[in-house]
């Protein structure tokens, strides 16, 4: 990190990344650069490897070939590297994955106090500030099971932000939500994007993608088929597969 200025190297680098689940070749030769502050939206049909790709970036999945470098640290089998990267990379899941036995506030301060060793008062202050930002400070003492899906996902975003990450990964954050709750989550994400967070978002919300993304990535059958700015991607897609996908997803 020291010999490298974060401004002249991408914060996330994927080079020739391959991954297999048993015999199944899920990721094929992925190459992707994400720069600091960039918002990347990844789309593609289900089973195309979108989730697997972003799960490789914080090592929830292991890649078998190629290189992944995050914030100057290469992801290898070295546990210290993995821990270092997970501290810098926040993740939001489709199923929220809040800890049901802890209150909202406890969900938020758990990792800061146990992993970053932040004093409890400070962690609570940060947590309340973030709950304020996602618009639900009054829910701090409730348990996740008492909240709506949209509220839970906003808590999950706040929980990831509590670790002060430099990168946020979103794995289909609105796919498990009822339609009327999608907007409240997307609003929080849009605000986060405007504040300059580096984000990779796997989503089918093309409205969000158009307004927020700097870079669109289209994946199919484990390959990155196309990556381009949204202006080009939506208006003038190059590959036939992208055209087909967009025609299916934008029809209604």
């Amino acid at each position: 990190m020291s010999d490298r200025d974060s401004n002249d190297a991408p914060i996330i680098i994927l080079r020739g990344v391959h991954k297999w689940f048993g015999q199944f070749h899920v990721l094929r030769d992925l190459n992707l650069d994400v720069w600091k502050g960039q918002k990347v939206v990844v789309c593609g049909p289900s089973g195309s490897g979108k989730s697997t790709m972003i799960r490789c970036i914080n090592r929830l999945e292991e890649h078998q070939r190629g290189h992944i470098v995050v914030d100057g640290i290469e992801l290898t089998g070295d546990v210290r590297n993995v821990d270092a990267i997970r501290r810098e990379v926040g993740m939001v899941f489709q199923q929220f994955n809040l800890f049901p036995h802890l209150t909202v506030l406890e969900n938020l301060i758990l990792a800061p106090t146990w992993v970053r060793k932040v004093p409890k008062d400070e962690a609570v202050a940060t947590a309340m500030e973030l709950l304020e930002r996602v618009g639900i400070p009054e829910q701090a003492q409730k348990y996740p099971g008492q909240l709506s899906g949209g509220q839970q996902q906003r808590v999950a975003i706040a929980r990831a932000l509590c670790m002060r990450p430099v990168i946020m990964l979103f794995d289909e954050p609105t796919s498990a939500l009822d339609p009327e709750m999608i907007k409240e989550v997307l609003d929080v994400m849009t605000e986060l994007a405007q504040q300059g967070m580096t984000m990779i978002v796997v989503t089918h919300e093309m409205g969000f993608a158009k307004s927020v993304a700097d870079l669109m990535v289209f994946m199919d059958q484990g390959e990155i088929v196309e990556q381009s700015p949204p202006s080009e991607f939506f208006v003038n897609p190059r590959s036939e597969r992208t055209k087909l996908f967009l025609s299916q997803i934008l029809r209604h």
């Binding site: 914080n58 929830l60 821990d83 997970r86 501290r87 990379v89 926040g90 993740m91 899941f93 199923q95 994955n97 809040l98 800890f99 758990l110 990792a111 146990w114 992993v115 970053r116 929980r159 990831a160 670790m163």
Partner: peptide, 12 residues
């Protein structure tokens, strides 16, 4: 998902 959320937050 509980394991993954914990790992993603950096818990060993």
């Amino acid at each position: 998902g509980q394991y993954e959320a914990a790992q993603a937050l950096g818990l060993n």
